[in-house]
Design a protein around this nucleic acid. Structure first.
Length: 772
RNA sequence: GCGCUCUUAGCUCAGUUGGUUAGAGCGUUCCCCUCACACGGGAAAGGCCGCAGGUUCGAAUCCUACAGAGCGCACCA
């Protein structure tokens, strides 16, 4: 049954008007999927011996299993499917791998929120096992939705190779990777000041912070009356953890104090402050003297490390105070701030109070105010020379292939952003205190106790010791313990040293750790598979520029380390799709327009075309329903052009050598051929926005408006030879136009192709122009 | 503070390495339901391509300064 056409009295098919996308698309997708041509093993009928060197491979950036597809995904699919269909039609062995991302923090916090809303329960009430069960259930559902939506977009993905960042194969890849990096000293556990998200109750990496400008008070004050130097801060409550005041070594005002130590009583808390000199202090800023808070500032902790200062934690994981002063103990930081300022004011210690605009750090996923805290966490060392990689560091491995253009980034100016990011990169904190995700493959002997290991043991790690209120014993070092922790790819239960039970580290890995392996974990790593050999490095990585650091950089890093090769040759970065007000429309924000609503209304082809045409790489774009509508009109135009051409009898089956073309028709075919060449080059060089516009313009304003109109005259008055020539030319141009349009608008073109009575799928027809 | 991008028709945006009358979609005006298509056809209006210099035979396109918008990173004592 096909409501797009009917058989007339002669038995010939007649295309009905207008084109009905809703009726067509699912049927056509099924046809493609069942043909097997989404997989690289099935090559087009016209290439009986696909050249092994001519492969085209790509991974789909795995959507998060947090919900539904948004316009950004639709754009990704549209652009990537254009590339994939184009290469398939040119005879490349073409592979495009689908998958989904478990998106640890995003997914867990989403499910937790839902459970809390419905049942009033928190994660602790459910327990690890039950919460994970609930999350997995949600993820499964979400996954199915996403897969269906992806298919609706017409994506010619090889579903037989579908992967999930948290499935068994990918988990093995992650554990293997972790161990290998640990063994090479690239992963370590250390006590450092990290970004703590009090709302999500987990650490986050530097890249997961977003900054927001807010008005804040900037206070200048002294710790006590007898302290000689004033300091300034926006966060007086952290000053309870000060252990030094740093000044610039060349600052004449403070030179005489350097090296002195003071005991002060600051708002009822006893502090021991040393005056130190450090180059990093800007004498122009504030009072030129900096109160050093090693426990609650990354910068200060680095100063503390240089000067061997003690670290005192005064704020806990719930962003509440942990100091002996009963007025402050357990107070929220904001409350503590007011109390402290009030006290300073009363005692005449507050010297200045001014309003400034200042960036506060928020956790990207939860919106919680990030609290720098000292914590024992796992890190990836980005500065350690790697022996088996010619003593290059992970930073080098990220930088070099882009620097020497082994990897091309489009648009090219993102290279600078990329290098800038690498220059400022610190060690990557990879452990998370959430339950959903890859649990660290680290096992501790229960007898030895789990919580205090820092390893590998180094002098640097030993130096930083926390002193808490109330003071606790110094953490034992792993050296002193008899049973060493074990990193193991396969789960183990008994301690090989003492035979006692082992306990697995409760933390999970940053989602991006598993995503970073994606180009090769999807191809079978750590196994040395044929896929890995054939399709890696992948040809292109197409994604949004906002995850250049999160994902692209880390894939380059991991691929460089584990395989010694680049993960992809070209990075194509698309812009962010915004709503009509120019606001970001994306994953967690909830203002996303469902692309499926648009495809239902206007057809997938129209949505794809509207997302691609006129959208330059790296540039944001707004969703405009009118534009989508316009391309629905275009789909219908193609439909009607086909109706007209198909009405011309006796031409369809005429062969090339049986026809004598008029000079005029030869010119028309030449013109088309040169356009095809042009468009081919545009697609090869990633100018999809231009290629789409060119074919659009030709088909409508040249082929339909001029050539077809002119043909009407020929069919009315021309000689039989002229008519035959023209009919043949029209068929030729129509067929080749359908081929060129196919990557952009796969459904309507395939539908017409099928209604023309073709035996093969348009999807695997030969591209009209083999340029070069 | 360091760096990046943008500023083109009323609106949203293209313009590939500098080259003839600067393009698309929507919108606007007029005419036409002409035998593929009104999800259509024909015609038209509308742009000193942010501002000021410079390079060039020639610049929306390259260089410099300025103005406005946005973004990234860092800082935020």
């Amino acid at each position: 049954m096909n409501i797009n056409s009917e058989k007339n009295s002669n038995g010939a098919r007649k295309l009905l008007k207008p084109y009905n996308s809703a009726e067509t698309e699912d049927r056509i997708y099924k046809l493609w999927e069942e043909s097997g041509f989404f997989a690289p093993e099935a090559h087009p009928p016209w290439t009986d011996n696909p050249n092994k060197d001519k492969t085209f491979s790509m991974v789909l950036p795995p959507p998060n299993v947090t919900g539904v597809l948004h316009m950004g995904h639709a754009l990704t699919i549209a652009i990537e499917d254009i590339m994939v269909r184009f290469h398939r039609m040119r005879g490349y062995k073409t592979l495009w791998i689908p998958g989904t991302d478990h998106a640890a923090i995003a997914t867990q916090s989403r499910v937790e929120t839902e459970i809390y809303k419905k049942e009033g329960k928190r994660r602790q009430d459910l327990g690890r096992e039950e919460l994970l069960r609930r999350i997995e259930e949600f993820a499964k559902q979400s996954h199915d939705t996403i897969v269906n939506q992806t298919k609706k977009m017409g994506a010619s993905l090889d579903w037989s190779r579908e992967a999930f960042t948290l499935d068994e194969k990918r988990s093995l890849a992650v554990r293997t990777a972790f161990k290998k990096m640990y063994d090479q000293g690239l992963i370590y556990r250390g006590q450092r000041v990290i970004n703590w998200d009090p709302k999500g109750q987990t650490t986050i990496s530097d890249d997961e912070i977003v900054y927001e400008e807010r008005k804040t008070k900037f206070y200048t004050f002294r710790y006590s009356k007898d302290f000689p130097i004033s300091i300034a801060t926006t966060r007086p409550e952290t000053k309870l953890g000060d252990t030094a005041v740093a000044v610039n070594p060349n600052d004449q005002r403070y030179k005489k104090y350097i090296g002195q130590e003071y005991d002060v009583d600051f708002v009822g808390v006893k502090l021991h402050i040393k005056i130190i000199a450090d180059q990093s202090v800007d004498p122009e800023f504030g009072t030129g003297a900096l109160g050093v808070t090693p426990a609650h500032s990354v910068i200060d902790s680095e100063i503390a490390q240089r000067h061997n200062l003690p670290m005192i934690q005064v704020i806990n994981e719930y962003a509440r105070m942990m100091v002996p002063n009963p007025l402050l103990k357990d107070k929220k930081v904001s409350e503590a701030r007011e109390i402290i300022v009030e006290t300073l004011r009363k005692e005449g210690l507050l010297e200045k109070e001014e309003e400034i605009i200042h960036n506060i750090a928020l956790a990207e996923r939860t919106g919680g105010v990030v609290e720098p805290l000292p914590k024992l966490q796992w890190f990836v060392n980005v500065n350690k020379p790697i022996k088996e990689r010619k003593n290059k560091t992970l930073k080098d491995l990220m930088r070099e292939p882009v620097e020497n253009s082994e990897i091309e980034i489009i648009p090219d100016h993102f290279k600078k952003t990329y290098f800038h990011w690498i220059d400022n990169l610190r060690d990557w904190c990879i452990s998370r205190q959430i339950w959903y995700g890859h649990r660290l493959p680290v096992y501790y002997c229960k007898q030895a106790g789990i919580s205090n290991f820092q390893f590998p043991i180094s002098k640097q790690n030993q130096k930083l010791k926390i002193k808490n209120f109330p003071p606790e014993a110094d953490p034992p070092s792993a050296e002193k313990l008899e049973c060493q922790p074990i990193i193991s790819i396969e789960p183990i239960k008994k301690c090989p040293d003492c035979g006692n039970e082992l306990e697995q580290d409760p933390d999970t890995l940053d989602t991006w750790f598993s995503s970073a392996l994606w180009t090769f974990s999807t191809l079978g790593y750590p196994e040395k598979t044929k896929d890995l050999e054939t399709f890696h490095p992948t040809s292109v990585l197409e994604t949004g520029y906002e995850i250049l650091f999160f994902w692209v950089a880390r894939m380059i890093m991991m691929s460089g380390f584990f395989l010694g090769e680049i993960p992809f040759r070209t990075v194509y970065l698309h812009g962010t799709i915004r709503d009509s007000k120019g606001k970001k429309m994306s994953k967690s924000l909830g203002n996303a327009i469902d692309p499926l609503d648009m495809t239902a209304k206007y057809g997938t082809d129209a949505v794809r075309m509207s997302l691609v045409v006129g959208t330059a790489p790296g540039t944001d774009s707004k969703v405009d329903e009118n534009k989508i509508k316009a391309y629905r009109h275009f789909a219908n135009k193609i439909w009607n052009i086909s109706r007209f051409v198909l009405l011309q009898k006796n031409a369809e089956h005429t062969r090339n050598d049986e026809i004598i073309l008029t000079e005029e028709d030869k010119t028309l075919l030449d013109e088309f051929s040169s356009l095809a060449k042009d468009i081919t080059k545009d697609i090869e060089e990633f100018r999809f926005y231009l290629a789409g516009e060119k074919i659009y313009h030709y088909v409508w304003h040249r082929f339909a408006d001029i050539i077809l109109e002119e043909s009407k005259g020929i069919f009315a008055k021309g000689s039989a030879a002229e008519q035959n020539s023209r009919k043949w030319a029209l068929f030729k141009i129509l067929e080749d136009s359908l081929k060129i349009l196919h990557p952009f608008m796969p459904f309507v073109t395939e539908e017409i192709w099928q209604l023309m009575g073709k035996t093969n799928l348009l999807m695997v027809e030969k591209w009209p122009e083999q340029a070069r």
